[in-house]
Write a protein that binds this DNA or RNA. Structure first.
Length: 613
RNA sequence: GACCCGGUAGCUCAGUUGGAUAGAGCAGCGGACUUCUAAUCCGCAGGUCGGUGGUUCGAGUCCACCCCGGGUUGCCA
């Protein structure tokens, strides 16, 4: 409540009203912002310039009239006017200390909406029989961070792992595994995800008929032997494809022999997925997983419903939803000419379930930016169909939190030398082992046990932070060296800043018997103390802004500047060796609050805070 | 072709609703450890914000056109 931004904004608005009376436009805003440069003060109000233009006055005169009517002497020094009409305000130390005291409760100033709204966040999106790779890293890490941010703001949150467990390719691999097991080549009881991935690829290759090759051989007369080989290949592929289609039908019918194999494949894939999600400290579990298969019985109904209501129409044999009224030229295809459904059909059903069953007011999709047209279409089509209508009758907000591609050092999509996707588990292992080497070097006193714990936290946090800290829409270059560096805007740097805070608090308690006391004021006299204090006050606003924009990197950037403000304070303002007791206790309080904000912020991003490292 | 996203220091990136002298880190140069964790801090140097025009008191930010890179584009997901 005693957030100075709120108080100053109110007082400024009162002053503007007093200065302008009826001439004040109803939407007038004091435009209060933290000053960029400390020499201008702590806060600046930029309203005078814009208002003056609208009212035909001189901006500096108007600024003066606002200042003449401004009553803030209880919390601030005498305001000054600078440049074309900036109003610069410097808080009194007592007010700054009081503001910090007010945000020191459990909320840290972040107001909770108490579950009044529901967010559904699409995360992870693994596929059956496939290893997780860097694409899933982003969908999991960014999605989970957004979910945590919304939870921190008091929303009710559902994570939804849209598991790719249905369709013809899935039937292909199911059929291949089933036959392998029947021939005794595969033991279903100890099959691994690696095995599945291998079989998936082989099954796909076997179904791909080389008809072009055959045509070429015939056209250029490359010989009866080559022609015979290719004919055999094409025929074999066609047979495989027929078998796969039959397998899909068997699965759709619920044939127990196929279903039991398919269930095993789901179990193996998801088991590996949840292991990684747990290791990544993301809260993605079985409960947050809804496979595409769970929509299978809804798809025909969706298409029929839309056709019946004239939302969809038949075009060139396919069923489409036209979206011209949304400014989208490409129609959304929801049924193929052969009667099959598409991923847009499933996504439409998913919007309906997320809004109408889960109660989502805001749906957020942490998904690759290359799918942006797809989501534009699905969102428009779902809205047109009424599937996005909430119980209160409003349309839910449908947001694509699109992210860019992870690149290798060569600026091309991150792949192995042979062009395969890099396994996420391998990446995590390498980050942790590099972190462990660094920990062993920097802090040899840690026990082997603690070293492993610290390395795990540092390695995982480093990878996650690298993914979260730049604007999500942009591609970024994956570099162990950079993400594990201890200087700059990195996960380890933030963890280290928190460790230093914890170390002070530990020493204060264990060696000097001092606890942080609510009775003393915060010490905000030195430049570094004041800079840190002003930074702390921004926390709640940054969490809100990161949530509103679905941009975790805003919170990252904030935590980094908080950590640098603390580091500067740490170097220049000794806490336990402060010149007097009041300063010491006031600095201790500042350190303690910094620690709480850092820890809360790191947790809100899904990073792993540490006591020591 | 159309549409979407990028382009800011040598490199990797921030830049809030249009605000004061465009900020960090790395790399480079120079300092600070008998000290609360130096995994750090302090200083110096480094810029045609892709280009041109426009809007205005003020543009990296908004508008128009253009250049470069990436992506998407009716029956894969």
């Amino acid at each position: 409540m005693s957030d100075p931004v709120v108080i100053l904004s109110e007082r400024l608005l009162e002053a503007m009203r007093a200065a302008l009376g009826d001439a004040l436009p109803p939407d007038a805003d004091p435009l209060l912002a933290p000053s960029r440069n400390p020499e201008f003060g702590d806060f600046q109000a930029n309203a005078a310039m814009g208002l003056a233009k609208r009212l035909g006055e001189k901006p500096r005169d108007l600024a003066q009239r606002i200042v003449d009517n401004l009553r803030i002497h209880d919390i601030a020094e005498e305001p000054t006017i600078a440049g074309p009409g900036f109003i610069n305000i410097r808080l009194k130390p007592s007010a700054l200390s009081a503001a910090l005291g007010a945000m020191s409760d459990a909320s840290l100033g972040v107001e909770s909406i108490g579950g009044a709204r529901t967010a559904v966040v699409d995360v992870c999106g693994v596929n059956l029989a496939k290893q997780m790779h860097v694409g899933h890293l982003r969908a999991s890490v960014i999605g989970d961070a957004l979910a945590r941010i919304y939870e921190r703001l008091g929303w009710k949150v559902f994570r939804q792992n849209h598991f790719g467990d249905w369709g013809l390719p899935i039937a292909m691999v199911t059929d291949a595994v089933k036959r392998g097991a029947e021939r005794g080549e595969i033991n279903l009881d100890n099959i691994t995800l690696n095995d599945l991935e291998r079989m998936y690829r082989r099954a796909q290759a076997e179904c791909a008929a080389d008809t072009r090759g055959l045509e070429a051989v015939r056209k250029y007369g490359l010989g009866p032997k080559a022609e015979a080989e290719l004919e055999a290949q094409v025929q074999g592929a066609q047979e495989q494809m027929e078998r796969s289609k039959a397998a899909l039908i068997a699965l759709q019918r619920g044939d127990p022999e196929f279903v039991s194999v398919w269930e095993k494949l789901c179990e193996v894939t998801l088991g590996a997925c949840f292991d990684i999600c747990r290791r990544l400290h993301t809260r993605i579990t079985d409960a947050s997983t809804a496979g595409e298969s769970t929509y299978r019985d809804e798809l025909a109904g969706v298409v029929e419903d839309l056709l019946a209501r004239g939302v969809a129409e038949v075009s060139e044999g396919a069923v489409v939803v036209r979206l011209d009224e949304f400014g989208i030229k490409e129609p959304c295809l929801i049924r193929k000419r052969d009667g099959g459904f598409l991923y847009a059909t499933t996504d439409m059903a998913a919007v309906r379930r997320r809004v109408q069953q889960l109660g989502g007011d805001r749906l957020i999709y942490a998904v690759d930016a290359r799918q942006s047209l797809h989501f534009k279409q699905v969102f428009a089509a779902a809205t047109k169909a009424g599937y996005a209508r909430t119980k209160s009758g409003d349309n839910a907000e449908l947001l694509h939190a699109a992210f860019g591609t992870v690149l290798g050092e060569d600026n091309r999509p991150f792949k192995t030398r042979s062009g395969d996707n890099v396994k996420l588990s391998d990446l995590l292992d390498e980050a942790v082992s590099r972190a462990e080497a660094a920990v062993a070097e920097k802090n040899p006193d840690l026990s082997a046990d603690e070293r492993r714990t610290v390395a795990e936290a540092v390695g995982i946090s480093a990878i996650k932070y690298a993914d979260l800290s730049s604007d999500r829409i942009k591609d970024y270059v994956f570099s162990f060296d950079r993400m594990l560096a201890f200087e700059g805007n990195t996960g380890p740097y933030l963890l280290y800043a928190l460790v230093r805070v914890k170390s002070i608090l530990r020493k204060a308690q264990d060696e000097l018997g001092i606890c942080v006391s609510e009775a003393v004021g915060f010490s905000v006299n030195e430049a570094q103390e004041k800079a840190l204090a002003l930074e702390l006050l921004k926390y709640a606003g940054m969490v809100r802004s990161a949530g509103d924009a679905c941009e975790p990197h805003r919170l990252c950037g904030y935590l980094y500047s908080l950590a640098t403000a603390f580091s500067s304070f740490f170097e220049n303002c000794p806490v336990l060796r402060a010149p007097d007791e009041a300063t010491r206790d006031g600095r201790l309080r500042l350190a303690a609050l910094t620690g709480r904000v850092l820890e809360d912020g790191l947790t809100t991003l899904g990073l792993v805070p540490l006591e020591r490292m």
